[in-house]
Amino acid sequence: MNCYLCDRDMPLQVSWRSIFFNELEEVVCSRCQSGFERMAGGCPICSTPGEGKCHDCCNWENAAYGGVIDSGKSLYRYNPTMKEFLHQYKFLKDAVLSEVFATVLKEELRSQKSVIVPIPMNEKKLKERTFSQVDRLLDSASVPYTHLLGKNEVGLGGKSKSERMALQDVFWWNGNPMPEKVLLFDDLYTTGSTMRMAAKVLKEKGVKEIKVLALIRA
């Protein structure tokens, strides 16, 4: 097959592992793959490099959104390769690209005890984009998830950080039963406001522990 990103022909790799463990097929060539940069260590919530909680997360902790997230991580840096990927996936709506991180997400979420809750899209946005990019990432990785939240139509773009921090009622509980532990999943973690607002609603409805996972840390 051809690489999903650069369209060059890739030699078909059939290994014993792929036969016995039903591994997902790689859809990206090794050169494109090497353009993505993993994150490791760093902030215990968003993986920003450095000792302890990062500046952003500390600000959140000192505001009304303190304590709503217990821990978390981000998997990749928002480098030029990732920017291009996200552009093609979200802006050009190339839905198959959800498979690019299937193996990594499957590995990451395989033995997850918490209920996985994707950050939702509002209906209008969903109709425009024609698919939910966050759900699709999990679908491609064959990871089960539950929606607990709905989202109102609010444009976050263009608002200052303090305005973002003050935004209320972006998310609402959709009425599904609340589990004890939740892992919130989103594609892109920018300021953290989305995760914080979603986590706050869930904690108010009785969730005891909330972890967050973002594919990308901007």
């Binding site: 839905a95 198959v96 109709k127 425009e128 024609t130 698919f131 939910s132």
Partner: peptide, 8 residues
Amino acid sequence: IIPFFCAA
């Protein structure tokens, strides 16, 4: 030419 479930 790829099939997908279209929300539109």
